[in-house]
């Protein structure tokens, strides 16, 4: 059974005089455990598509069904809770909370979920050790390198035990060494723990690692290649 299914998904921005079709009728499915990259030139609709999959932006038309539930049938508050419990996000600019330590940044999501202190502490330690930051748990983001911050962001995305992780250009701000480390970690998590990763990217290194590559152009899927 597919974990994500989109049906005739459309997003039209009607802010300016000329409506812009950012996503134009995408029908696609993602299975559990996929390691997929969405590629395409700037303005092809990658980020918009990812935002809609993540319940951050509502489609103009079409459906997004996650585990059998059409998420845009839910009320706003329910969608927020749904995101918290089912979807992990990794952003291009890491977006960690600067006043919290790495440990606290990861714990925060579990706190929102109402997990016990003991459970939070145990899982945070496991996750940060898993991304190679067991020794930097008490460091604030400004004391971490870009690569380390993005690894904390991955640990944070995993904290809520999501069904899948959406990563919007996760390597765009990283050097090649940090990119390689991050990709290795994500690949390992995918292979060992069967975690589903969907990236939007321009980065050839990410594309190389991905087992499925979906190419968008003008809001339309022009190729969907499984390696």
């Amino acid at each position: 059974m597919s974990i994500i299914e989109t049906k005739k998904l459309k997003k039209i921005y009607d802010d300016s005089h000329v409506p812009v079709k950012a996503v134009d009728g995408i029908d696609i499915t993602f299975e559990k455990g996929e390691f997929a990259a969405i590629v395409g030139p700037s303005g092809s609709g990658k980020t918009t598509f990812l935002n809609m999959l993540g319940g951050l932006d509502n489609p103009t038309e079409g459906e997004i069904i996650i585990d059998g539930i059409n998420i845009w049938d839910m009320k706003s508050r329910k969608i927020t809770d749904f995101r918290m419990n089912n979807i992990g996000f990794v952003f291009q600019a890491y977006n960690l909370i600067p006043v919290l330590t790495a440990k606290e940044n990861v714990e925060f999501i579990m706190h929102l979920q109402g997990k016990s202190k003991a459970e939070r502490h145990k899982r945070t330690r496991e996750l940060l050790e898993n991304v190679g930051l067991g020794d930097r748990m008490d460091s604030r983001p400004n004391k971490l390198s870009g690569g380390q911050q993005q690894r904390v962001a991955v640990a944070r995305a995993l904290a809520s035990k999501p069904k899948f992780i959406l990563a919007d250009e996760p390597t765009a701000n990283l050097d090649s060494k940090s990119t390689a480390t991050l990709l290795d970690i994500m690949e390992r998590l995918n292979e060992e723990e069967n975690i589903t990763f969907i990236f939007s990217t321009h980065d050839a290194r990410v594309v190389k690692k991905a087992r499925r590559v979906i190419t968008l152009e003008d809001g339309v899927v022009i190729s969907d290649e499984v390696k």
Binding site: G54, L56, R77, T80, D81, R83, M84, N85, F89, F91, A93, N95, I97, P98, I109, L112, Q113, R156, S160
Partner: peptide, 16 residues
């Protein structure tokens, strides 16, 4: 704004 957007994205509801 970015940070608030991230908080809302990861599931921090409006009341929080």
């Amino acid at each position: 704004i970015k940070e608030l957007g991230m908080l809302m994205a990861v599931g921090m509801n409006r009341s929080r």
